[in-house]
């Protein structure tokens, strides 16, 4: 079976390259899966968990802000501002960030609600990805 050539790139470095059977990315309106032979696609990505299904198992990343570029020849390029593996996520910091965002949303006094919501989402998704480690 044909395989996907996946590269996960951030502005600062190459976060990972894989030969994969399937990739699941957090699109802006929900998750979408890419299988070999996918049509060419460029999509904006949201905040969430990126899953790469390789023959050895599933690789998980927390990603935020970027694009998915599916090109010819099963090349899948994921260009994101942030890509973190479960081991690199600082759980305490994410928990703190979640608390801060929640309390900011609670008092509602002229805070930037959209920003607080985005921060909350990032923190929660980070925790979801980090939780893979303990499984």
């Amino acid at each position: 079976m044909a395989e996907l050539h996946v590269s996960i790139l951030t502005p600062a470095k190459v976060a990972g390259t894989f030969s994969a059977e399937q990739v699941q990315v957090p699109g802006i309106d929900g998750y979408l899966g890419v299988l070999p032979g996918h049509t060419q696609l460029i999509s904006e990505l949201g905040v969430g968990e990126l899953l790469v299904h390789t023959r050895q198992g599933i690789e998980s990343y927390f990603v935020s802000g970027g694009y998915l570029d599916v090109g010819e020849g099963n090349h899948v390029t994921i260009l994101v501002d942030i890509a973190e593996k479960p081991v690199d996520i600082k759980v305490d910091r994410a928990k703190d960030a979640r608390q801060r965002a929640l309390s900011r949303l609670d008092d509602k006094s002229g805070v930037d609600v959209l920003r607080a919501q985005a921060a909350l989402r990032r923190a929660e998704q980070r925790l979801v990805v980090a939780a893979r480690l303990s499984k």
């Binding site: 790139l9 502005p11 600062a12 190459v14 570029d69 390029t77 260009l79």
Partner: peptide, 23 residues
């Protein structure tokens, strides 16, 4: 090392922009 590490993203981004513009 940081300059070198940043190159793949730059190249891939450029390629994507070109495809977008073509599309």
């Amino acid at each position: 090392a940081a300059v070198v590490a940043a190159r793949p993203y730059g190249a891939a981004f450029q390629a994507m922009v070109e495809r977008l513009v073509a599309a």
